[in-house]
Each structure stands twice: as structure tokens, then as C-alpha cells.
């Protein structure tokens, strides 16, 4: 659905996006992570035909940027970094304007559908300027969906929202995901990316890494299992450290942190050996590094 090859954007001498190559499939929710000024918004603007690339190519929904800009703009939906609503106009009017500009066949029907879906129907006649941040964001999302785009670009969809509003927006994105739409999300919210995205890319002017969040964890840290013992763990190190399937083992207080490739196969054997050696195992769990750890490591390397 979205394919870029060496997509590059320069503003004068300033390189904003450097040779970005991506391939995003249909129905995929793709997280585009990066710090402020990394070039995320510039990338979205290129992919929505708002600005032209300096070099490279991109095909969005079968249309090539720079050549089929009108078709791209007609077939994608975009939630910009700020909602950019007409504050003096009602929610209904805001959406009606955009539905007409997006050449929607049944304007009132589509506007009603999304106002109801996002819980704004009762406030449809109120000026958008009177809405809370969360409601404004929902209205902006509705605006991006009026023409039923198969590809949706969401630039910081939950930025600045309180937890309740952010959850509402996230739940709605989940619904869109279930509908099979391709969603490209720029976000700082790593927890959100972890929960919503099939794959994530860490980006800072150039692409650092692309993978599933699980794949990234394994790439960076391998799989790690923690054995919580009732006693100090260091005395059990000799029991486990010579096992051929272990990649790394470490004792921290009363915990044994063990890196291994296939815990489902080898955990029973490890547990047996530890118990036979007299260890009192309280519980066993997989150590899950947060996406934040991975992100910070990658961004700081850059």
C-alpha cells in the first residue's frame, strides 16, 4: 500500500529525510517513531503529496507521488499534527466542508455516521472552538475518514490528550485496524505504538530499524527469563551457567536473569535443575524490555 525507495527531502542544506526505503502492506498498522525534528511530519507530508521529495520515489495506494498527487490526496486520509479545525463553525459544518472537498457521494450520511461513531452527534451544532482537546481530536479524525480512505496517516494522534481521551482515540484506531485499513502512525507514545502497531520504524533523519516490537526486543536483547528465588541467587549460578542453550546468565539479588533462545523448550529443564540443587523458586517470568528502552538505545546510537 505504501512503498518508498530512497525517499529524500532537503530544505536548503538541511537534510530532513535521508533515503527512506519502506514497504508497508495492506491492513498494516505501522508506527513511525522518532524524536522531535526527526523528519516524521516531513515524511507524512511527502506521502500525502503535500510536499515534493527532493529525490527518491514513493507509491501510495498504487499512485506515484509527484505524478498522481490529486489521486493520492483523494485516496488517503490525514490527521495533521494539530487538528486545524474551523473554530467558529459547528462540528457538522466542519465535516460537511471536507466531505464535499473529498467528493463524498452522500455528504450528510457520512458526516452523521462519523459524528455518531465518535460520540459527537449530540454536539454537532456546537462550534468546534468550544470543544475539549479530545473532542477536537476526534472531530479531526472523523474529518480524515469521511471519504473512507484505505490508507490513513495519523500524526501524533494522542498528543496532548488526557489519558481518558487518549484511550478513546486509541480504541478508535483499534476499530479502524479491525476494518483492515492501512494506518501510518507518527508517535512519541511508545506504549501506544507497542499496543497498536504491527511493525514500528525508528527514524531520525534516516531509518534506524524496522521490525515488529517483538522482533525489535529479540534483536536488541534476545529473550530473557527471570527466576525469582526465595534466597540469594548467586550460589545457583554454577548450576545453570554451563548449559549449552544459554546465551547469558546473571544473578541480581535473589533473581537469576537468563538469556536463551527458546525458553518454552528449556525452561522446564532449568527449573528441574534448580529445584534439585535446592532452590526455592517463587515464580518464573519473561523479562520484557519496554519499547522505550529499545527506542532510546536506537535514537541515542544515532
Amino acid at each position: 500500500m505504501i512503498k518508498t525507495e530512497n525517499l529524500t527531502k532537503k530544505f536548503g542544506d538541511n537534510l530532513a529525510v535521508d533515503r527512506l526505503t519502506l514497504d508497508i502492506g495492506e491492513g498494516e498498522v505501522f508506527g513511525f517513531l522518532g524524536p522531535n525534528g526527526a523528519g516524521k511530519t516531513t515524511t507524512v507530508r511527502m506521502l500525502t503529496s503535500l510536499i515534493a521529495p527532493t529525490a527518491g520515489t514513493a507509491v501510495v495506494n498504487g499512485f506515484q507521488i509527484g505524478y498522481d498527487d490529486y489521486d493520492i490526496r483523494r485516496s488517503v486520509g490525514i490527521l495533521t499534527e494539530t487538528p486545524g479545525l474551523y473554530d467558529r463553525l459547528s462540528a457538522w459544518r466542519n465535516l460537511t466542508i471536507f466531505a464535499t472537498l473529498y467528493e463524498v457521494a452522500d455528504v450528510p450520511g457520512q458526516v452523521e455516521k462519523y459524528l455518531r461513531m465518535l460520540g459527537l452527534w449530540e454536539r454537532r451544532n456546537d462550534e468546534a472552538g468550544t470543544f475539549s482537546k479530545g473532542m477536537r481530536q476526534k472531530l479531526a479524525i472523523a474529518r480524515a475518514l469521511l471519504h473512507e480512505p484505505r490508507i490513513l496517516f495519523l500524526d501524533e494522534p494522542t498528543s496532548g490528550l488526557d489519558p481518558e481521551a487518549a484511550k478513546l482515540v486509541r480504541d478508535f484506531i483499534e476499530e479502524l485496524k479491525e476494518e483492515g485499513r492501512t494506518i501510518f502512525i507518527c508517535t512519541h507514545n511508545l506504549d501506544e505504538a507497542d499496543r497498536l502497531c504491527d511493525r514500528v520504524a525508528v527514524f531520525k533523519t534516516r531509518l534506524r530499524v524496522v521490525d515488529t516490537t517483538k522482533g525489535l526486543r529479540e534483536q536488541m536483547y534476545g529473550r530473557q527469563v527471570v527466576f525469582h528465588l526465595a534466597e540469594t541467587a548467586v550460589s545457583y549460578l554454577p548450576i545453570v551457567q554451563n548449559q549449552p542453550y544459554l546465551r547469558h546468565v546473571e544473578a541480581v539479588d535473589n533473581k537469576l536473569v537468563i538469556a536463551l533462545d527458546d525458553p518454552e523448550t528449556y525452561n522446564p529443564d532449568l527449573i528441574r535443575q534448580l529445584v534439585e540443587a535446592g532452590a526455592n523458586i517463587q515464580f518464573v517470568g519473561e523479562l520484557r524490555h519496554s519499547l522505550e528502552d529499545i527506542y532510546l538505545q536506537l535514537v541515542n546510537q544515532a
Partner: peptide
């Protein structure tokens, strides 16, 4: 300045 231009330009309007 009201930041409403970008969504407008993102529509298929010439």
C-alpha cells in the same frame, strides 16, 4: 495561523 490550511491542502482541491 489557525493551522487549518494543511488539512485543507491535503484534500483533492486544486
Amino acid at each position: 495561523t489557525a493551522r487549518s490550511l494543511e488539512p485543507l491542502l491535503a484534500t483533492p482541491i486544486t
